[in-house]
Design a protein around this nucleic acid. Structure first.
Lengths: 104, 104
DNA sequence: CGGCGTTATATCGCGGGACGGAGTAGAGAA
DNA sequence: TTCTCTACTCCGTCCCGCGATATAACGCCG
């Protein structure tokens, strides 16, 4: 399930949202995002996003469990997710409100 | 007001949201977005997004009023905005819910 | 009427990120 | 062992965000 029109995906945010549910390794994140949001992240997209997020201190890598490398949301990551989610919610509400006005 | 961490802006979506309020030309969109969402779109970002959106049939250009070139949201654009806004709302709600669970 | 700030649009170029695909390797089943 | 899932890494390309820059029309004040 992909957007036919452009790429309005925001993989980083999807990863943060997935990790908010608990620590996960990359592959599990892929599945979680696919189930919850219906967006399938390719491996390139996923792990690139993970390393960027870690670099920025929004997530942290945990010691590997076997060949799995779990990640955990940091406090900064949780704060950022919260801020972005709130912003998204405001924008979504504004947009849907305007659409209703227009169709009236 | 810029995000310190990465660029989670989605200018295309912001333009659609602005046009949902009524036809506007580019400069008016900039101001509207800045006021309503607190995001300032540079001219490069704005007009690039406009031409992409028009190319994809999500907005349509109207005959110029003097030196202004107004744009209107198409039906497809309204549908896309609606879909994206709904998706954003679901994601935002899911994220905020998970964050509350985690902090409990 | 001449200069000036604001309005309004357009273009260029760089850098970064999204994205898929190919490649690697461990673990369990047969 | 071999086959097959799982799990991750690397690579290349294309798109896009976005600041800088250019251009020009309009209104206004002296």
């Amino acid at each position: 399930m992909v957007d036919e029109l452009g790429r309005w995906a925001e993989p980083g945010l999807l990863v943060l949202a997935s990790l908010a549910d608990g620590d996960k390794h990359g592959y599990a994140i892929t599945n979680d995002v696919a189930e919850q949001v219906g967006v399938s992240l390719g491996p390139g997209t996923l792990y690139a996003a993970l390393s960027r997020l870690e670099e920025r201190g929004l997530i942290e890598g945990l010691p590997a469990e076997g060949r799995r490398r779990p990640y955990r949301l940091t406090a900064a990551g949780a704060a950022e997710l919260s801020a972005q989610a709130s912003r998204m919610q405001r924008l979504a509400t504004l947009s849907l409100g305007r659409l209703r006005m227009a169709s009236a």
